[in-house]
Amino acid sequence: MADIKYYDVILKPVVTEKSMELMGEKKYTFLVHTEATKSQIKEAVEKMFAGTKVKSVNTMNNEGKRRRVRGTMQFGKTAKTKKAVVQLTEESADIEIFEGL
Rank of each mutant, 00 (worst) to 15 (best):
M1G: 12
M1C: 07
A2D: 11
A2R: 14
K5L: 10
K5Y: 07
K5G: 08
Y6H: 11
Y6T: 10
Y6K: 08
Y6N: 10
Y7T: 09
D8A: 05
I10C: 03
I10F: 05
I10Q: 02
L11T: 07
K12F: 11
K12G: 01
V14R: 03
T16H: 11
E17Q: 15
E17H: 09
K18P: 00
M20R: 15
M20Y: 12
M20D: 08
E21M: 13
M23R: 15
M23L: 13
G24T: 04
G24H: 14
G24K: 15
G24E: 13
E25N: 15
K26H: 07
K27E: 09
Y28L: 06
T29Q: 10
F30R: 03
F30S: 03
F30Y: 13
F30D: 03
F30I: 05
F30Q: 03
L31D: 04
V32S: 01
V32T: 02
V32C: 01
H33V: 00
H33C: 00
T34F: 02
T34L: 08
E35P: 00
E35H: 14
T37V: 08
T37F: 07
Q40V: 06
Q40S: 05
I41N: 05
K42D: 02
V45Y: 10
K47H: 10
K47I: 07
M48N: 10
M48P: 00
F49S: 06
F49I: 08
A50V: 09
A50Y: 08
G51Q: 11
T52Y: 08
T52I: 09
K53P: 00
V54F: 09
V54A: 04
S56G: 00
V57N: 02
V57C: 04
N58L: 11
N58F: 03
T59M: 09
T59D: 01
T59K: 04
M60N: 09
N62M: 12
G64N: 08
R66K: 15
R66W: 00
R66T: 10
R68T: 12
R68Q: 15
V69C: 03
V69D: 05
G71A: 10
T72N: 10
T72M: 11
M73S: 14
M73T: 11
M73Q: 14
M73Y: 14
Q74Y: 13
F75R: 13
G76T: 14
G76F: 12
K77S: 06
A79F: 00
K80E: 07
K82D: 05
K83L: 07
K83D: 01
K83H: 08
A84E: 05
A84T: 06
A84Q: 06
V85M: 15
V86G: 02
V86D: 04
V86T: 03
V86N: 04
Q87A: 11
Q87C: 02
L88T: 05
T89M: 12
E90W: 03
E90A: 13
E91S: 14
E91L: 09
E91C: 02
E91P: 04
A93N: 12
D94S: 10
D94V: 05
I95H: 06
I95K: 08
I95S: 02
E96H: 12
E96W: 12
E96K: 14
I97Y: 15
I97T: 04
F98R: 10
F98P: 00
G100W: 15
G100E: 11
G100H: 14
L101R: 12
